[in-house]
Amino acid sequence: MTTIYRKSKGLQDVPMHYCPGCSHGIVHKLIAEVMEEMDLIQQAIAICPVGCSVFAGSYFACDAIEAAHGRAPAVATAVKRTHPNQPVFTYQGDGDLASIGAAEIVHAAMRGEHFTTIFINNAIYGMTGGQMAPTTLLGQRATTAPGGRTKEQAGCPMRVAELLSTLEGLVYAERVCVVDIPHLNQAKRAIRKAFEKQMAGEGFTFVEVLAACPTNWGMDPIGANRWLMEHMAEYYPLGVVKEV
C-alpha cells in the first residue's frame, strides 16, 4: 500500500480550531508541506501573530514564538539575525500586519531582513468578531462599518504587497489565494520560492494570501471563495508583484 496524500509532517497531530472553510488551515498546510519537502522542520522557527492564528505555534511542528500584536517582524528580525542559517517566517493577518504592526513590517522590509512573511489578507478582523481591517473593501460590511466601508470615513484599502514592493530590501512579493487546486498549487509554489530565496540570503520575501473568512463575511465556504475571486482578487490582483 502506498500513500498518495497524507497530513504533512510539518503539522502536529492535533485538531485545529479554525471555523469551517477558513483558509488558515489550508495555508498552514502549504507552509508545512514546503518545510517538509525542503527538510526544514527541524531548523525552522515560526513567529506567530495575535489574531485567529495565535495558536499556530501549537499546529506547526517546528519551533515557534508568539509575538505581541503586530510585532512579529521585530521578533523575527532578532531571531533571524541571531540564527542566520535557520529558516524564519512570520505568519500574520491583516489587522496584525497592516494596522497595528505597519511600522514593524515596513522597517523589516526596508532593512531587507532575511525572513519570509506569510500575510493572510481576509479583509476583516476575524478573532475579535468581524471589525473593519485596513484591507476591508469599500462597501464591505464590518461590525465597525455596519453600512459598509466608505472612502470618506476610513480611506481606501491598503495593497500591502505593492506598498512593500517599493522598498529595496524586498526581493520577492507575490499575491496568491487558495480557493481551488490550481490557485492552491500556485500558492504553494510561491511559499516555496520565498523560502528558497530566504535560504539563499537574497533578502526579505513576502507572500500575500487572499483568504476567506466565511464566518465573519456571513457566507458559506464555497460562497466565500466565490466572493473572494469576484471582489477581492479584483482589487488585490493575483500574481507576482515584485521579483528581483
Binding site: 500500500m1 497530513k7 504533512s8 488551515g25 498546510k29 492552491l184
Partner: peptide, 20 residues
C-alpha cells in the same frame, strides 16, 4: 482517480489517500 484534490484543499488535513 487519486488526484488528491480533496486532501490538498482540506483545511483540517483530515483526508488520507492510499492505493493498494
Amino acid at each position: 482517480i487519486g488526484c488528491a484534490s480533496c486532501g490538498k484543499i482540506c483545511p483540517d488535513s483530515i483526508i488520507t489517500i492510499t492505493k493498494d
